[in-house]
Structure formats: C-alpha cells, structure tokens
C-alpha cells in the first residue's frame, strides 16, 4: 500500500505540472505534448487502481488519436509554431478565481463526504467483466454511443470539406 501511495503522488505531481503547463505555455505544440503527459499519468493512475482496460483505451484513444487530431488542428490553423505572441488573454485573474472557486467547492464536498474512505483493491478488474456489462446491462447506451460516433464522423466530414 505504501508503494502504491508513493507511485500515486509521483504520477499526481507529474499530472499537475503537465496540466498547469497545458494552460500556461506560449508554444501551442508544447501544450499538446504536455497534454500527453497528463493523459499518460491518468492511464498510470487507472493501472494503479487495477482498472487496466480503460487505461489502455486511454493510451490508444487519447494519446494515439486525439493528440494527433490536435496536432493536425494546430497545423491546419497555421498556428504560430514559435512562442512569438502570448496565447493567454487578459482574463488571468477572473479565470484563476473561477477555477479556484470551483475546485475549492469540489474539494470541500469530497472531503466532507468521503473523508477517510479507503479503496480496498482485491483483484484487478478483468476485461471479461466489462464486456459482460457493456453487452448486457449497458447495451442500449452502447448502441446509442455508436450512432453518436457515426453522426459525429459524418458531421465532421460534411463541415470540413471544401465545396
């Protein structure tokens, strides 16, 4: 348990630093690459929790596909590749206030409700259980999500093509 806690705090420190760099760096490509660090840290936390299927899905879908999409978006909008102009507007203090207020409220609610609840890990969750759940109890949401993905695909193609 001690080793898991140490690993958690190491990953959490990397994720926090990466998240702060994502929202503050003046180089657009670097922001996307810092996002990779946060996502990889999230996958590591999932493995730490014994939930490995979603961890690998996170690696494949987020780091493999979404980040590549982001880099394409950066290139296609001809974003400045070097840090030549500031990428943050002058709303720093209102933004900070909103973020602190929200995160503070969340943290207070969490501490109030789950003050000392422990996670007792018995065994890793196997992929078979996820398959059973998705194709039995959550079959209708699964199909709906499939239709939504198809609609998003067609919508993105229709919007982005030149005619």
């Amino acid at each position: 348990m001690v080793a898991q806690n140490v690993a958690f705090w190491i990953f959490a420190a990397f994720m926090a630093a990466g998240a702060i760099r994502v929202v503050t760096t003046d180089n657009i490509v670097h922001a996307a690459l810092w996002l990779v660090l946060v996502l990889a840290g999230g996958a590591a936390q999932f493995i730490l929790l014994g939930q490995e299927f979603v961890a690998w899905v996170q690696v494949i879908v987020y780091i493999g596909a979404v980040i590549v999409l982001f880099l394409f978006g950066i290139m296609l909008t001809r974003a400045p590749m070097e840090a030549e102009e500031k990428l943050n507007n002058n709303l720093r203090w209102p933004g900070l206030a909103a973020a602190l207020l929200f995160a503070g409220t969340l943290a207070w609610a969490f501490l109030d409700q789950w003050g000392s609840d422990k996670i007792k890990l018995t065994k890793p969750v196997r992929t078979k259980e996820i398959g059973d759940l998705v194709f039995r109890g959550y079959l209708v949401p699964f199909e709906v999500v499939g239709v939504l993905l198809l609609a998003a695909l067609i919508g993105a193609v229709v919007m982005a093509r030149k005619d």
């Binding site: 926090a16 998240a19 994502v22 909103a98």
Partner: peptide, 12 residues
C-alpha cells in the same frame, strides 16, 4: 479547475 482556467484564458 485547471481545465476551467484554460477554457477562460486561452486565446487559441
């Protein structure tokens, strides 16, 4: 919270 800050302050 960091995400909220980014949504409010980012210019791209």
């Amino acid at each position: 919270g960091t995400g909220i800050y980014g949504v409010i302050t980012r210019k791209h």
